[in-house]
Write a protein that binds this DNA or RNA. Sequence first.
RNA 1: GGGCGUUUAGCUCAGUUGGUUAGAGCAUCUGCCUUACAAGCAGAGGGUCUGCGGUUCGAGUCCGUAAACGCCCACCA
Length: 839
Amino acid sequence: MLDKKYNPKEVEENAYETWKEKGYFASGRNNGKPFCIVIPPPNVTGKLHLGHAWNTSIQDIMIRYKRMQGFDALWVPGMDHAGIATQAKVDKKLREEGIDPRSMKREEWLKVAWEWKEEYALNIHNQWAKLGLSLDYNKERFTLDEGLSKAVRTVFVHLYEEGLIYRGERMINWDPMAKTALSNEEVIYKDVEGAFYHIKYPLVDSDEYLDIATTRPETMFGDTAVAVNPEDERYKKYIGKKVILPLVNREIPVIGDEHADPEKGTGVVKITPCHDPNDYEVGLRHNLEKIVVINPDGTMNENALHYQGLDRFEAREKLVKELDEKGYLLKVEKIIHSVGHSERTDVMVEPYLSKQWFVKMRPLADKVLNNQKNKDTKVKFLPARYEKIMNHWMEITYDWCISRQLWWGHQIPAWYKGDQIYVGMEAPKEEGWVQDEDVLDTWFSSALWPFSTLGWPDETADYQKYYPTSVLVTGYDIIPFWVNRMTFQGLHFTHQRPFEYCYIHGLIRDKMGRKMSKSLGNGVDPMDVIEEYGADALRYYLTTSTAPGTDLRYDEEKVRAAWNFINKIWNASRFVLMNIEDLQEEKFEDLSISDQWILTRLEETIKVVTRYMDKYEFQNVGSILYKFIWEDFCDQYIEMAKFSLESVTTKSVLKKVLGDILKMLHPFMPFVTEEIFKNISETPLIISEYPKYEKNFLFPDGEKECNALIEFVRIFRNRKAELQIGKEYKIYISKPNDYRLISKLLKWEGKEIEEQLSDNYTIVEYQDYQVYLYNEHKETLEEKEKKQKNMEALKKSIEKRENLLRNQNFVQKAPENLVNEEKRKLLEEKEMLKKYQAE
RNA sequence: GGGCGUUUAGCUCAGUUGGUUAGAGCAUCUGCCUUACAAGCAGAGGGUCUGCGGUUCGAGUCCGUAAACGCCCACCA
């Protein structure tokens, strides 16, 4: 029997271990159709946040639902090594211990990193358990494990051989803090305060000068030209002349190039090929000299005169001062402009000329775009509009810079010997080959996740059975990083989409709608929420509060409301359990109208819930179950059942309805439902069969009759409340009917009288039910006003309906049942009005 | 500059291919300790569905347009 109070801590304590030990999370337990989800692997950098809790709860609902429906459900767990992020954290930890991480040997450092990984993996496992996620731990993978590394090398070698991976010197995004290259997707543009520095570049052999506006004066040491637009009347006469680079006193040419926009700045732009992507292009067109002035760590190098060794921002400040003192600074205009920042370290990204590995994107992106045109093979987004985001990125794509100057990751399978280069699965056998020091972008391995976790490139049984996967669940923010890349790698290497559906959810925000972040201090730890309200309440709240694809504002009040709902279920279950203790064999004979009503409502609920579950519209499932359980089952049926608790039929119905409710709720709130279900079944709920819509439990006549009864009770209570009648009243039943159930429901404290009295009564009626209600007090003034209002509303409604029915367009074009319905209502309203008038 | 989203009750959000009087939770008001649950029960009030125009017998829903807020992309000397 259940405790008097619902206590999530007790309920959730041991269930997870039991499920896990008994093997219920494991795939391959039955011969059902495969249903597979691979978890978006969390980074081994920290703890899971609310976004993870949301993301994984959604997946667990899908998996538990399909498992109960008899699918062979596989949910693949795993984690991501998260290159830059993890390396940054490990380095930070080492520095705090007084160790310079870069002074370590690579192997030693990796040992520390793996220890870090183990520690955080344990942490994540504990959190998954708290959340109740039914992951198949037999299949767990890590992006750096052997199998996945093999997949990574296979893909790299293949793409290289196809010419889709190349090595080249390009302008890339450089993170001076992590000292590594980044892909374009890892650069976040932020508005920052900066300035246009107007600098005087004197023309050679002339008193004239050009006014150059730049936001980055410190790169001037690397200027190798000044550009004007060839169409610009103001400046085209200077093309071919030379200017003197201030302080450096180097002569550089004035060139004509369309990159110079007459509308922007002063119309004259300095060209620094090594420190600006556009300037780099200009440099190539005009064959300009390339001068690097900034070191990989963001300090100025030997080309920056006496600024050598200074940090780039410090150098800027001092240089501007010097230019001013020497009369080269014309003016400083403060501006707000957007500047690229590293996603992980948040430092300003430096455009940098560097030799890196790239994936040639165009052919791969085209595969995605073409595939999305095919209805049968495309990745189906839920909601569908997110397909546009994928397509957009695939249209504008750039070559993907995949090499990272890090230690934590898959080392690039390329070896060098002098000018020779070898790319292969293993190191060349001969002496003297040295492997590329760099590792691959984390997303390079994540992109293979849906098939590498299932054993690819080997044709394993799992790969054959579960691939392509059924659904991928992720937030819209990582479509460009991850969804796109999985899709093109999947299409290229497995010739199939990696997942049939891509279910997109939003981001979690705080109550004010702001992103949760450490700096704002508005983050919420899901473990704290679980501690207070339980995982079931958190899961139900997260998964039923918004429509797919929209953001969620975290609101503790709503978690409390979810808790409340569970408490209600708990109490209703207690009531049922304490009354079915002696039930031997279930019988569904001689069903009362209330039995028929709840059974019919149950079947209808099963039908609709199943439909929405199949569409993954959990918000709708949530509200339907909430209504059915709280209003239909608790407020109506249980109240009616109280008057026939000794009946085997009533007990049977209570048990059946409760059982099916628990089954439908289980994917959302696995712990509490399993705990209650123990009391009514030998079979664990997690592997029980999901309810099926059964027509032989539909009783439309009984349902209708019971609806009338419920409606009459509602009206009676309503009238009684309006008339402010207390316990003292008399009733006269004017139409013969079975009023026993009603009298119990209404707790008619008043006296039933045998004949009708003449005054101070109100008729309460609905369909076949009619009673005269006598109160001690006269009708109040408000009551009269109310009646008047009702009459007016009725008259209006009647008029509206009459007009509608007079409209031949409506009568002819609208569906017949709708027209009939209108007619029926019109009659009903007219009759009601008549009665009002008669009173 | 290009694209997307949001705008519905005091607050947070639902609202399916257009079809009863637009719903829920929380909050508010009234009355109840009715023995599963007072974290509850029975009732009540509260909406120009952002504005304007159109299509339609009928629009919160479809189309056009304007506004506010938010997001993504591009540019940013």
